[in-house]
Design a protein around this nucleic acid. Structure first.
Lengths: 148, 148
DNA sequence: TATTGTTATACTCTATAACTATA
DNA sequence: TATAGTTATAGAGTATAACAATA
């Protein structure tokens, strides 16, 4: 409790400020596609995996399951994903991307990558990989890993 | 637009999820002191600097100036900071920490550091330094640097 | 004219609790 | 008894616009 370290050395603070710079820019890039970072993330996972449960989505995105409902509702209304009851566990309503959802996702990914490259372009590819590895460890931290 | 990279390689996504893991934990650690990450950050800058303008705080924290008002109001009501009109520019209402504010800040910093160490403890000190350096570059990115 | 601080407002995001249907 | 999904609600965070005082 002597001379406290400066705020700028606080990793939580740096994480918050970095996010505050990047996320609004990415949201702006996604606006044209009718998406934002969260709905884009759900769509991306639906495209990458077969039959994702909403519980899995909640864990992966660190959101409450109740928040996933509205996001999937929006994507379903836009025709980008569909829900279907699992044949093996009728409690589960698996989310799957439609062909149109895959098209939208591919285009959206292009604009996300472009936008992030502008913001992170100061970092070399090596540095970006290092950052990815470090953030992945923080993000995963305490996960059950009972997932896929 | 061929095979889009997985969501887990997206730095914006990793930033958002990492923050979603760290910030609530830090907010929890600060709750006892009547603070959260944002009010703690304002208090910390008021302790580190002499006479910070609210505009500077907004830039540093990447918040809108209008949001700073409520945060400083809360800190002032709690007796942790005071506002005083600048003698050189009477538009400016500089924020300065009170002695009690400094005491609270020192104790709060202790619990923040403890909490973050639990979450980031998997990373070695070297890795934490590397992460700090990388995040600082993203956070600063486009700053005017006309500040202190 | 431009800038600092302020008020007001609407919108998004987050956190919590309770409920249903299935297991 | 536990889990997947849902609804409802309140609170925190964010984005915009407009205004007064001062430069």
């Amino acid at each position: 409790m002597t001379q406290p370290r400066p705020l700028r050395d606080d990793l939580g603070f740096l994480l918050a400020v970095s996010r505050a710079r990047v996320i609004p820019a990415v949201n702006g890039a996604l606006r044209g596609a009718g998406l934002n970072v969260r709905s884009y993330s759900v769509l991306a996972l639906a495209c990458e995996r077969e039959d994702v449960s909403q519980r899995e989505l909640a864990d992966e995105l660190r959101l409450d399951p109740s928040q996933i409902v509205a996001i999937v509702d929006g994507l379903e209304d836009a025709g980008l994903v569909r829900r279907h009851v699992s044949t093996t566990d009728r409690r589960m309503r698996a989310v799957v991307a439609t062909p149109e959802g895959r098209t939208v996702h591919a285009a959206a990914t292009d604009s996300v990558v472009t936008t992030e490259d502008e913001l992170l372009g100061e970092l070399s590819p090596t540095e970006q990989d290092a950052l990815r590895a470090l953030l992945t460890r923080i993000a995963d931290g305490d996960r059950t890993r009972a997932l896929t």
